Amino acid sequence: VTLFVALYDYEARTEDDLSFHKGEKFQILNSSEGDWWEARSLTTGETGYIPSNYAAPV
């Protein structure tokens, strides 16, 4: 399992994006889409796309 942590807060701009807060942890589901990764929040259980430059490996 690849775990990442949010470096900044992010507010979803589309219904496919995932809103999150700094410090929140994610499981990365798909990182082959370039700058946007499909991720599941370990806090909320929700799935959506996150900007890859807002996350770092745990």
Rank of each mutant, 00 (worst) to 15 (best):
E15K: 13
T2R: 13
F4A: 10
S52C: 10
W37I: 08
P51Y: 07
K22W: 04
I28G: 00
L29Q: 05
W37Y: 09
S52H: 08
Y8K: 07
T47P: 01
E33S: 14
I50N: 01
V5G: 01
L29G: 03
F4S: 03
E46W: 08
A39M: 05
G48D: 01
S52Y: 10
T2Q: 13
Y8V: 07
Y49F: 13
Y54M: 10
L29E: 05
F20E: 02
P51V: 03
S32W: 11
G48S: 01
N53Q: 11
D9I: 02
S41Y: 03
A56K: 10
T43A: 11
S31G: 10
Y54I: 06
Q27D: 07
S41W: 02
E11L: 10
Y10G: 00
L18I: 11
W37S: 03
N53V: 09
S19Q: 04
S19W: 02
K25A: 07
D16R: 15
E15C: 10
K22Y: 05
L42P: 03
Q27A: 10
F4R: 02
P57H: 06
W37Q: 03
L7Y: 03
E46C: 12
G45Q: 08
V58M: 12
D17Q: 15
E33R: 15
Y10I: 02
I50V: 06
E11P: 04
G23A: 02
E11M: 11
V5M: 08
G23D: 05
S32Y: 11
A39W: 01
G48N: 00
N53A: 14
E38C: 15
V58E: 09
L29F: 08
G48V: 03
F20M: 10
Y54E: 02
F26N: 00
D35Y: 12
W36L: 07
S32D: 12
G23F: 04
L42W: 07
F20W: 01
T44E: 01
S32H: 11
G45N: 08
T44C: 04
G23N: 05
T43M: 11
D17N: 10
T14L: 09
D35S: 09
A55C: 14
S52L: 06
F4K: 01
L7V: 06
A12M: 03
L18A: 01
A6Y: 01
D16W: 15
A55S: 06
T14W: 13
T43W: 11
G45L: 07
I50H: 00
S32R: 11
V5F: 09
A55N: 02
E15W: 08
D35L: 11
N30W: 08
S19D: 04
K22G: 03
Y8E: 07
D17L: 09
T47S: 09
L7M: 08
D17R: 15
A6K: 00
A6N: 00
T44D: 03
T47R: 10
T43G: 06
G48T: 01
T43D: 12
T43N: 09
D16L: 14
P57Q: 08
Y8D: 06
L42A: 05
K25H: 13
E24L: 02
D16A: 14
S52K: 14
A12D: 01
G45A: 04
Y54L: 11
T14P: 01
V5Y: 12
Y54T: 04
T2P: 11
T47G: 04
V1E: 13
G48K: 02
W36M: 12
P57F: 06
Y8P: 00
I28P: 03
E11R: 08
R40E: 07
T14I: 06
D17I: 11
Y49G: 02
K22S: 06
E38H: 13
V5A: 05
N53E: 10
P57N: 05
D16P: 03
F26L: 12
S31V: 12
W36D: 03
H21L: 12
H21M: 12
E33Q: 14
L42Y: 07
R40Y: 12
V5D: 01
S31W: 14
P51M: 06
Y54W: 07
L3R: 04
A39N: 01
Y10S: 02
K25C: 12
I28W: 01
V58S: 08
P57S: 07
G45K: 04
S41C: 06
T14M: 10
L3A: 07
R40D: 02
W36Q: 06
A6G: 04
F20T: 02
E38M: 15
K22N: 03
Y49R: 15
E24R: 00
G45E: 04
S19T: 10
D9C: 09
L18K: 02
D9F: 05
K22I: 09
G45V: 02
V5S: 04
N30G: 10
Q27E: 15
T44L: 02
A6M: 06
I50K: 00
T47I: 14
L3Q: 07
A56W: 09
P57K: 07
T2W: 13
K22H: 05
E46T: 08
P51W: 07
T43S: 12
L3H: 10
T44W: 02
A6D: 00
L18R: 01
T2L: 13
Y10F: 09
E33Y: 12
E15I: 10
R13V: 13
Y10K: 01
E11G: 05
T2F: 11
S19C: 05
L3D: 05
E11T: 13
G34D: 13
H21N: 10
V5I: 13
Y10C: 04
E11H: 10
A56G: 08
F20K: 00
Q27H: 13
H21T: 13
T14H: 14
G34I: 10
T44Y: 02
L3I: 15
S31C: 12
A12V: 02
V5H: 05
Y54P: 02
L3G: 03
D9A: 06
R13H: 10
I28N: 00
S31Q: 14
E24W: 06
R13P: 07
G34E: 12
A56D: 06
D17Y: 14
N53K: 13
R13G: 08
E33A: 13
F4P: 00
P51E: 02
T2H: 12
T44F: 01
P57L: 08
A6F: 01
V58D: 10
E38N: 06
D16M: 15
R13E: 10
A12S: 11
R40L: 14
E11C: 12
V1P: 13
W36T: 06
E24M: 05
E46D: 09
Y49S: 06
S32T: 13
A55M: 15
E38Q: 12
K22V: 10
Y10D: 00
K25V: 15
W36K: 11
E46F: 10
T2G: 13
G23C: 06
L29N: 05
L3P: 05
Y54V: 05
L3S: 07
G48R: 01
L3C: 08
T2V: 13
D9V: 05
Y49L: 15
S32L: 13
E38A: 07
T43P: 01
I50D: 01
V5P: 00
Y49Q: 09
I28Q: 01
K25W: 14
T43H: 10
D35R: 07
A39C: 06
G48P: 00
D16E: 13
N53S: 14
D35W: 08
A39R: 00
A12P: 05
K25Y: 15
I28Y: 02
R13D: 07
E15G: 13
D16G: 15
S41G: 03
F4L: 07
Y49C: 10
D9H: 06
R40S: 06
K22P: 03
S19G: 07
A55D: 02
F26M: 06
D9W: 11
A6P: 00
T44H: 03
S31N: 13
H21A: 12
V58Y: 13
K25S: 07
T14V: 07
D17K: 15
I50Y: 02
V1W: 14
Y54F: 11
Y54C: 09
G34C: 10
L29V: 08
F26W: 02
A55K: 02
W36V: 07
R13K: 13
G23S: 02
V5W: 06
T14D: 11
G23H: 04
R13S: 11
G23E: 03
E46I: 11
D17E: 15
G48I: 03
P57I: 08
N30P: 05
S31E: 09
F26G: 02
G34R: 12
G23Q: 02
F20Q: 00
G23Y: 05
G23M: 02
T44R: 03
